[in-house]
Structure formats: C-alpha cells, structure tokens
Design a protein around this nucleic acid. Structure first.
Lengths: 198, 198
DNA sequence: AAATGAACTTGACGGCGTCAAGATTTTGTA
DNA sequence: TACAAAATCTTGACGCCGTCAAGTTCATTT
C-alpha cells in the first residue's frame, strides 16, 4: 500500500539522515554540513534543504535519531540488569554513559543548545522516550519529601552533568563506572516497600 | 614602564574580546564571527586572527573571560552567605545558576565541547579558579566513604547538569532555587565536626 | 494525453575562516 | 641619530558554507 520508496531516489530522506550520521561518526558535529551530506548521498547540494527545510531541520531529524539510539541503549542495559531497583538504576546510568562515550558526536548534538536544531514533534517524542526510561526507573524508589519529581530531576541532572563533564576530561578511565555508582550510593535512594537503611 | 597601550590601536586584543562579548550578549554564540568582531572593534577582518591565531583562539580567550565572570558570581554569593556549610553550599549553587541564567551565551560557550575553542593555559587557570570555589565548599563536609573527591564530582555534576537542562526548558520559574535546594537536601551532606542527622 | 505537483538540480549571492603578501608603525640597537 | 628588525594591521584571493530563486525531471491524477 504505502511502500516507502515512491520517488526518484527512493527514500532519500532516510539516506540523508544516514549520511549525516556517518559524517558525525567520522568527523564530529563541526564538520557536518548540508553540502557534505548531499555529496555523500550522491545528490545535489539543495536536496537536503528540500527535505528538511534547512540545516536546522536536518540537525533536528538527526537529533531525533540520536535520541532513539540513546533510549535504546539505556533500555537495553535496563533489560539485562537484575530485578532490583538499585541494579536497574545503575544499569540506566551505565547505558547513559555508554552512549555518551560510544557516540560522542550524537551526544554532542543532544547536549548542545536546542537553538541549533529545529524542535519538531518527532524530536519531542524521541526525547520523551529517553526521559521515560529514566522516569520509570526513578518511580521504583520512594519519592523525595520535597516532591515526587525531585528524584527524577536529581538523577537526570547528575548523570547528564557527569557525562558532559567527563566528555571534556578524557581521563584514560575508558569504561569505569565506579565513580557514577559511588555517587548513586551517596543519594541513599530507598526502593519502595523497603525500610530505609541507616 | 610597561604601559599597556604601546601600538597602533591601543590594546586591541582587549577591545576585541569585549566586542566579542557584546556580540554574544546581543545575538548568541551562533552569530559570533571573527569578521563581525573585527567590524565592531573598527578594524580589518584579519586583525582578530592575528591576535588570537584563529577563531579557536578568540573563543578560548572569551571562554577564559567567561570563567572569570563565572567564578566571581559564585564567590560573591559565597561571601554574602551565612557562616554555615549548608548555606555556603546553597550559595555557590545559586551563583552557578544565576550565571547560567544571566549570561546564557557565555554559559553556552563554557558548556560547549572544548573542541570548539583552543584550550590555553589562561583558560586552565580560569576554569580551575571556578572549580576551586566549589572544591573548597565541598571540603566543609565529611568526605564520602567512596573517596574524598566523590562529593566534588557529585555536586559539580549535579549543578552542571541541572543548569544545562534548565537552559532548554524555559519554564517560567525565572529565579526559583527551591528545586536545586531540595536536591541538595537529598544528598544528606554532613558538615565536618557534626554528628550525622538521621 | 494533458495537467498538476512533488522531487530534485543549477545558478547566483553574501558571509564565513584563513593563507599569503603587502603596508605601516614601533622597537631594538649600533 | 640612523637603520634594521619586528610587531601590528590591511588587502586580495580562495574555497566552503547556507539558502533564495528559477529551472528540469519524473510520477501521479484527471
């Protein structure tokens, strides 16, 4: 019925997003241009503008893809973790950091000011999906006395800030999650239906 | 002896940094260019490149200035706070957020990937000064059992992440510090020489 | 079969960073 | 004081960039 290759190139929009991500993997966000994306996809320089409306649009579409990948990485770690609130929380933080380290260019895009790309509904959905993984994990713990959303904001800020900071200090520590696990311990989170320790 | 206006323009380097910061205040980091900076300072387009080596260099110099401003904002809040570890900690977090909100363009620059500007010794010193304000405040509390530097990393990550996230959600909350104060409470920090509560 | 419109291309324009080379002014030195 | 050297700043040129405007090609509709 709605076969997704109805025109000249055959799903050029998708090919352009993939080309852009390839450039991000190879060169970083600073070297991503509409013209380079077009060249890699083998089309003329205005083709990306036609599909995305401009550079903001392309970056927005790539950011949405990045958020999908991001959510999937966290969800994957969540799924393979033990059925235990603390282990689940560790898992999504681990997934968060794995994404930041394995996909630095995509993480930069997410990290960067939203004024750099167009904030479409697609992007809202993708980023909400990422946030939902975190939110549901936080819901496994007793809420803060200051309000139920404080825990989410606390964890989200902590992991986001830690990931951002560890981007710029390339300490050899490669894949050491002890530091983030230690910080999680300091929060003294209490799983629901369990008496607080200490 | 060493009067700092010995040549053509008279401390053009300084004038260029100020011009760049004016552009940042008016238009944001995306509209800052070497050529626009030169035009605003009333010199030819290659003058900034001569002084800073290129765009990376100018951005680095401006970032150093931003860090100075940043450290001063935190220090100012620190100084006017009560002589109490918890109040001091609240004060520097408040200063951090005030800077992020009052100087969004400068904060963006600091926040952005270090690959966007040249990381000079001057910048290392300025950013270390900012970190030192935070470090000394964290030292007022008992160290984590996981290591003495965990508290610093925890606070730094938390406030950095919160500031970055609240940049992109322009909730009207203008200058509401209750949320960050609530999160600080959740950390159950214990000032040195005091028995832990609860 | 003709028309409509979507999918692309090509031309042109101004803005960008920067290499290279020239011009101007200060500074070091004999 | 005179002259060389160095620092400061300018101008020209180049290629890359995003994008407006106007084409061309192709698929679908009528």
């Amino acid at each position: 019925m709605d076969d997704p290759k109805p025109y000249h190139h055959g799903n050029l929009r998708e090919a352009l997003i993939e080309a852009a991500i390839e450039i991000l993997h190879e060169s970083g966000v600073g070297d991503l241009s509409l013209r380079a994306t077009a060249a890699r996809a083998g089309v003329s320089r205005m083709a990306p503008t036609h599909h995305f409306g401009g550079k903001d649009g392309l970056l927005g579409a790539v950011a949405a893809r990045a958020y999908e990948n991001f959510a999937a990485t966290m969800q994957s770690e969540f799924d393979r973790a033990e059925e235990n609130a603390h282990e689940k929380m560790r898992a999504i933080c681990k997934g968060y950091l794995m994404f930041a380290r394995n996909e630095p260019a995509l993480f930069d895009l997410i990290l960067s000011d939203e004024t750099r790309f167009q904030w479409t509904d697609e992007l809202t959905i993708s980023s909400a999906k990422s946030y939902e993984v975190l939110r549901s994990t936080c819901a496994m713990f007793k809420p803060s006395k200051h309000g139920p959303e404080i825990t989410e904001t606390l964890i989200w800020s902590l992991i986001h800030g830690y990931a951002a900071l560890s981007r710029r200090t390339p300490v050899s520590q490669e894949f050491d999650f002890r530091e983030i696990f230690a910080m999680l311990d300091e929060l003294h989170l209490t799983p629901k239906g369990q008496v607080p320790r200490r």
